[in-house]
Write a protein that binds this DNA or RNA. Structure first.
Lengths: 113, 113
DNA sequence: GTCTTGCTTAGCCATGTCGCTAACTATCAT
DNA sequence: ATGATAGTTAGCGACATGGCTAAGCAAGAC
């Protein structure tokens, strides 16, 4: 059970922090500079920068430096792997419940043919 | 930027570990006892138990003890908060891209009325 | 009763995470 | 050229996480 799916692990880990989720929601309103992202959080810049690098490593945002200001933006496809996993998971769960259904149905038929 | 949405944090954190995701996928096939869950992982029981408690705290599974064996099962609604968050997020992102669209459209109109 | 099985608890260790301060670099304004 | 602004890097400390072993307990098997 080694570390398969490192993407998913990075993604989930990035999303597990409320500060990072708040940063994402801020970015959903449009691109922002680092200081702007730090603003409402009350956290220091180095801390914010660390969070940014986690988000970027997870593929959730992109950032580019223009002059002395770094502009950060959402990566529109960043959440796709998560959505994919979620859909897979739901499919499996439903398959299972369908099998359970079949089973119950078969039981019923045996009892009242 | 305090720890709002503790549920989501627990949920994402629980899913950030490949071992735990593997356990979920095993449980998608049907309920299982602790030893059975530990089987393919090569990990010791106490370790597995720890993972189980994380999954349970996140609302992803339920477990009950029957005799001396604890049976674990998926909680069918466990992923709902995640799905909800994801949908919210997508809505926000799309709203943003729509506004961007409007903006571009307005620019175009100004240029060629 | 005794033994085995299946889980549980306690506690240790290595590593990772999240916050900070201090010091540095690079750009822009004057 | 000087100073202010915006990031950046290095490194520290507190705490969480993920693995383990050892020892305990409770339910079934014999």
């Amino acid at each position: 059970m080694a570390k398969q799916d490192p993407d998913l692990s990075l993604l989930f880990h990035a999303l597990a922090d409320p500060t990072r989720r708040a940063m994402l929601e801020r970015l959903a309103q449009g691109p922002a500079a680092v200081t702007e992202l730090a603003g409402p959080s009350g956290l220091r810049l180095p801390t914010i920068l660390r969070h940014l690098s986690v988000l970027e490593a997870a593929g959730l945002i992109t950032s580019a430096k223009d002059g002395r200001v770094r502009s950060c933006a959402l990566n529109p496809t960043g959440l796709d792997p998560l959505r994919g996993w979620l859909d897979d998971q739901r499919a499996q769960w439903e398959a299972r419940f369908d099998r359970l259904d079949d089973y119950v149905t078969r039981l019923m038929k045996e009892r009242m043919p």
